[in-house]
């Protein structure tokens, strides 16, 4: 016991702010929302216990719930790979050893800082409006652009592009990962005359696997929780025609527009299950494709 403390005390001291925050601020609401998910609660009168009623309605009768899942899954399936490929690509370019790398790193990271902000979402709406910048540029080269944001067929893709543009934080992690790959491996490959793309598939990717895995999990969780950009661009409703009805936007509307806190809590808990499932799948399959350098098998 004494040894445990001697060894771990510093860690717990560092964890303390988070632990205090978690127990004081987060745990209570989390448990409350679990309870509320089994009730009907309009925020004014007291919650009424209805057992599995909310979950039953969700799966059997709520068409918009399925629509929200469809939108969110499509988004995650497109945005996560797009962002990771973009991040890895840029990281590899920067890894070539530019002298002003610090500056470039900062510049490329900038969109990630701005991307979650309301201002960028509004800007995005302007860019992709029927008479926005994107269409004006397209018109210059003779292409008649679509009405990207107001057309349910294309609105989701504008958000995927937005997600792609926010590649900053996975890029930094990739960059750190790339730096960790021993140079002599490439030198050896160079001497053997291995072409560049084979160096990439045989050296870079396998050695980067832990980092890719880390980024994949983080970005997947992040994408499932996408809210502010979709909320702003769709005017808070998931419009046009529910094509931007992200799960979180639907949840927000159920809770704060239609006063169905109980149902919204149920939705929130199901989102937790979805994210947990995907994370679990990622961890479970990781042993087949992620190898750590210090592992000996």
């Amino acid at each position: 016991m004494k040894r445990f403390f001697a060894r771990n005390a510093p860690a717990y001291v560092f964890l303390l702010p988070w632990l205090i925050g978690f127990f004081l601020l987060a745990l209570g609401p989390i448990l409350a929302s679990l309870y509320l998910s089994f009730t009907r609660y309009d925020m004014v009168s007291a919650p009424r216990w209805i057992g599995w009623g909310n979950y039953e309605y969700m799966f059997t009768r709520d068409r918009r719930f399925w629509k929200a899942l469809e939108v969110t899954f499509t988004y995650v399936a497109l945005a996560v790979p797009a962002r990771l490929i973009m991040a890895l690509g840029v990281a590899m370019l920067l890894d070539k050893g530019l002298r002003t790398i610090g500056l470039y790193r900062a510049i490329f990271y900038l969109p990630s800082l701005l991307g979650a902000s309301i201002a960028i979402a509004i800007l995005w709406r302007q860019l992709f409006a029927a008479d926005g910048v994107v269409n004006q540029v397209l018109a210059m080269v003779g292409i008649q652009g679509a009405s990207w944001i107001t057309d349910p067929d294309t609105s989701l893709y504008t958000l995927v592009v937005l997600a792609m543009w926010q590649f900053g934080s996975p890029m930094l992690i990739f960059l750190a990962g790339l730096r960790g790959i021993p140079r002599d491996l490439y030198e050896a490959a160079e001497i053997d005359g291995t072409p560049g793309w084979r160096q990439f598939t045989r050296i870079t990717l396998p050695l980067l696997a832990p980092v890719i895995f880390f980024n994949l999990v983080l970005q997947t969780i992040d994408s499932f929780k996408t809210f502010s950009s979709a909320f702003i661009i769709s005017n808070g409703t998931g419009a046009p025609a529910d094509s931007l009805l992200f799960y979180t936007v639907y949840l927000f509307n159920e809770a704060f527009k239609f006063f169905r806190m109980g149902y919204a809590s149920a939705l929130a808990w199901f989102l937790l299950v979805i994210i947990a499932t995907f994370t679990a799948i990622a961890f479970f399959t990781s042993k087949y494709w992620v190898h750590y350098e210090n592992e000996r098998d």
């Binding site: 057309d151 349910p152 409703t237 998931g238 419009a239 046009p240 025609a241 529910d242």
Partner: peptide, 12 residues
């Protein structure tokens, strides 16, 4: 009404 009407207006 607005949600379903959007699909009508866009001819979908």
């Amino acid at each position: 009404f607005m949600r379903i009407g959007t699909d009508v207006v866009l001819g979908k």
